[in-house]
Simulated assay, not measured.
Amino acid sequence: MDRETFYQYILDNFTLSGGEQRMVDTILQFIESHYYDYDKQQEILRELLCDIDLTEEGKREVQSFITECKTKRNEVLDNAGDTIKHTTIPTQKEILNDLNSQEDVDECWGVTDNYGMKIFLEYGIHFI
């Protein structure tokens, strides 16, 4: 992914102030101007992004989401006769791993085999 595409991805998927947007753009420009090899640029970006961690608010939000998933699972299984043969409730570690692997933060997590729920995490509030 080139710098412009990556920058647009950040803007589309995260809520950033004007100053934060300029900082991200400056970092991307720095990487592009100091590392000419595309693969090296990608490596540097991955290193920068893989230090994502949940804030205390994020930990509470994720735990609340996991609890909601468990409650909803029981509700759906009791009322709709759904199955859970291919679905597990996400853990905090799995959600954090998705953040660190640059997967979609608003991902739908399976509650049962036919029902899912989304968690919405915002940079600066839920993770840094």
Rank of each mutant, 00 (worst) to 15 (best):
D2S: 05
R3L: 14
R3T: 06
E4C: 02
E4Y: 11
T5N: 08
T5E: 12
F6G: 12
Y9C: 13
I10W: 10
I10Y: 11
D12W: 09
F14G: 02
F14T: 12
S17G: 03
V24M: 14
V24N: 07
V24S: 10
D25C: 11
T26G: 11
Q29E: 15
F30C: 09
I31Y: 11
D37V: 10
D37A: 05
Y38C: 05
K40G: 10
Q41H: 12
Q42E: 15
E43I: 08
E43D: 07
I44H: 00
R46T: 15
R46S: 15
E47Y: 11
L48W: 03
L49P: 09
I52L: 15
I52A: 15
L54Y: 04
L54S: 05
E56R: 14
G58T: 01
V62R: 09
Q63I: 03
S64N: 13
I66T: 02
T67M: 01
E68S: 08
K70D: 01
T71L: 01
N74S: 02
E75D: 10
N79L: 09
N79K: 11
A80H: 06
K85P: 01
K85T: 11
H86M: 08
T88I: 05
T88A: 09
T88H: 10
T88R: 01
T88M: 02
P90H: 02
T91A: 08
Q92A: 06
E94W: 04
E94N: 04
I95P: 06
N97Q: 15
N100I: 02
E103G: 06
D106Y: 06
G110T: 00
Y115K: 00
Y115S: 03
E122C: 11
H126L: 03
